[in-house]
Design a protein around this nucleic acid. Sequence first.
DNA 1: ATTTAAATAATACGGTTGTACTATTTAAAA
DNA 2: TTTTAAATAGTACAACCGTATTATTTAAAT
Lengths: 200, 200
Amino acid sequence: MGMPKIVDHSERKSNIAEATWRVIIRQGIKGATVRNIAAEAGVSLGALRHYFSTQHELLEFAMNLVKERVTARIVDIMQSELPPREQIMKVLLELLPTDDSSMAEMEVWFAFTFHLKTGGEKPVELNDAIYPLIVQIIDYLDQHALFKQGLDKGDEAERLYALIDGLALHAMLEPDRMNKQRVIRVLNIHLESICTPSAT
Amino acid sequence: MGMPKIVDHSERKSNIAEATWRVIIRQGIKGATVRNIAAEAGVSLGALRHYFSTQHELLEFAMNLVKERVTARIVDIMQSELPPREQIMKVLLELLPTDDSSMAEMEVWFAFTFHLKTGGEKPVELNDAIYPLIVQIIDYLDQHALFKQGLDKGDEAERLYALIDGLALHAMLEPDRMNKQRVIRVLNIHLESICTPSAT
DNA sequence: ATTTAAATAATACGGTTGTACTATTTAAAA
DNA sequence: TTTTAAATAGTACAACCGTATTATTTAAAT
């Protein structure tokens, strides 16, 4: 029984997904056609279809890959041995577009989210992983006695979550005004307001 | 010199713009084709083109109409004679999707914003009117001695702005979790945190 | 070297898109 | 009533879309 040419299947899919990101960043979700993506990835239409049988399947994969990459970076930070407050700050910054790379991820994320919301196709388990993470962060602050007394954990999780996504939105849509420095400044002010007034 | 059939030109354009909103709410920006919009508005393709010579022109008009409608409602609230704190709360709620109508406006707003961002066509003066409004609100609080001392007005404007848009985003994408009651709750908590601890 | 199926390529098809063009209808002014 | 240009309708076209189909190439296993 002979076996044919073998390529790294999942790596090839990732390459195509990354090409999808580049197309979306350059032309928006409207430009994310199978032909544009195939051309950007440097493969033929037939080759692309060999890995993703429908456009929907490709877009879903490309978005999940964004989620995986971001999650992996956050897990790395969580496993580091930084002081709690610094660690939290780094994690939150990971959820915001602070450079070209994360800016691209954010654009892709928002583009997909809106596209899938009104896609008409199956609901697509968006399963936003950010909210549970925020809840976890508030818990983490509380466990390290950094969470200011008198505040409600659930409410503050909701408020921090909204603040993060609002900052992300503004950093993406108005990058000149809401630059990295300003993002960090606002984030620090908010953390200060929900943390116990300890040492800086 | 004879004159032909005359219809209310601007009202007709508004009707078509409102049809555009309904299509976007139902099918997303991807479904906002000139044919879908013409059908929804109950006019022919030629008639639509008589009022908007390009699709881009139509979409731009439809988005600006959203902005005008929201601005008009806010001006109304501003001119009312409510206690400052209640007035501010009503204005902020006007920026958030709290019912089907404002939910629709919000969807249209976000859909347009993202579409125009990566439209490829001319930059389109988005000229977000919300940020100046937030700055105005912070000033208003300060002038009525409601703004907590020790806080920076610029920073708090930025923070409130991000919170508002974050809440709007979550109310739109996760309406079950972030319902109207929860929006008001978070908004109250934040206002409490930046206002002087006066009477409720 | 031959076999085999994965990998890739090329082409085709029905449908939709934005826009353009032309003809017809409408009602206000003459 | 006739004239006139706005308003509307209908059709056409080139380009692009997602997907399907078929043929070819490739390299691993025999």
